[in-house]
Design a protein around this nucleic acid. Structure first.
Lengths: 246, 246
DNA sequence: CGGGCTTTTGATCGTGTTCAACGTCGGTGG
DNA sequence: CCACCGACGTTGAACACGATCAAAAGCCCG
């Protein structure tokens, strides 16, 4: 099955209609950040808006990397698998994030929608051609990749050297920081992913994630009003825990 | 102490003499890959050849990222630290590799020479200016970063989900693959780093690395003629072990 | 309500860590 | 030259953290 068949296109085949970059909610925080009006039109002309439902697999590890994506709505999980089924999440994506890193023209990981998602899709070949045409775009991509690489290195430190409570605390803090940078406050964060997704992101089991969250609740550092939402009551303490300062 | 003071410059202040890109041993496998003669000269004009002795700290996590480097000789370890001293290696660099990824203008990790090293140093500001001037260079950097990111994700899978023997096997295989791509054969690999460096790369202790290597020796899969050198006798078996196919 | 899923909690187990001692190698100075 | 020393590597025994196995509780959606 071609990966394209997963997608429901949201508009006609007129790409300008399909890609209303002008009223895009993530413009300025994403790939299109700081592009001139003219360049934006070019980018717009090769993009297609697509929507995917919760649980849909957007890309598959090892499939040919024909498309790249910009997340404009919803959230996505990225993961890699071992032959026996063990899974490692490599990241969670939210609006503004970029999707589709490849090696040898094949995707390096699989991606699945955690909620109903909106995406901006670019054919790989066309985007690469555009990169050569618009240096600002290439520069923007370079910066995004640098940042991702730095985050990946932080994650290595977490996976290789942190304890369960440090891992969970770091994870919550990272989500909080992210939320804060968008909404202004990071005290209440949304957890669209399940415990087992979190476990696979942190190199833990669901049980350990659950126990650790319960532990943090008992200490009064966090509250969990509903699954899917979490409140941080003591940011200082959580920060200390995340770095092992205890 | 400024990080620059660690370096011994190898030639006069004439940058063209300092940067003999023409006879560079890593040309074509590095940043300068596939640059036109003209562009190479521009790159050359902003670079300085430096040498560092074994054990010297080349860059420090959180220091301002004033320079970027290209490794032209020797090997380097990259690492991040937690406040209490726990350490995570984020990578080992060999000739042809690029060094100096930053976030917020500060280095994201520290780097230390495993052996006497030769480096090609670029002032950050000048290299960034050159990137805008030479799209091919920016494109090249983009590709290198993509590859690094894919490798970082492989490492996350390793750190989060693999067992000790799978980690060590994967590590040896990666070194072997790398050696093979340069020298043609990957059966004998050099291990310029110590056991504790390997442990910190794989999220293990020195003891566990040592025990696991002994284990592989007893099974006849590897031999260790001298520390610093390792021979792979059964590549198939090692490959299976690396992915948990046993 | 009822059914199936996710989450939580409990008890036991095992891999890798920790702590400790010993072995090995290489360099230095007597 | 080799005896000494310190760093690194190996091996052993006990421990601990998180995994695994199992079951109960909660939640969402029909």
């Amino acid at each position: 099955m071609r990966s394209g068949s997963h997608f429901a296109q949201t508009a006609s085949s007129n790409p300008l209609v399909n890609s209303p970059c002008e009223k895009c909610n993530v413009a300025g925080m994403s790939l299109c950040h700081a592009l001139s009006c003219d360049d934006l039109k070019k980018l717009s002309s090769i993009s297609t808006a697509v929507e995917v439902g919760k649980g849909v697999t957007i890309i598959n590890e090892m499939d040919p990397a024909d498309f790249l994506f910009n997340v404009t709505g919803g959230s996505i999980k990225l993961y890699k698998l071992l032959p026996d089924g063990r899974r490692q999440m490599t990241g969670f994506l939210f609006p503004g994030d970029f999707l589709g890193i490849a090696m040898n023209d094949c995707y390096a990981y699989s991606a699945e929608a955690l909620e109903d998602c909106k995406l901006c899709r670019f054919p790989r070949a066309k985007l690469e051609a555009l990169l050569k045409e618009i240096p600002d775009l290439e520069n923007r991509l370079l910066n995004m990749l640098s940042n991702e690489l730095v985050l990946a290195q932080d994650q290595m430190l977490l996976l290789g050297r942190k304890t369960a409570i440090e891992k969970v605390s770091s994870f919550l803090l990272a989500l909080s920081k992210r939320t804060k940078s968008k909404t202004g406050t990071g005290d209440v964060i949304s957890l669209p992913m399940g415990r087992s997704d979190i476990g696979d992101y942190l190199g833990l089991t669901t049980e350990t994630v659950s126990r650790t969250l319960t532990n943090l609740k008992k200490k009064g550092i966090i509250s969990i009003p509903t699954n899917g939402q979490l409140e941080i009551n003591d940011m200082e303490e959580l920060t200390d825990l995340a770095e092992g300062m205890d």
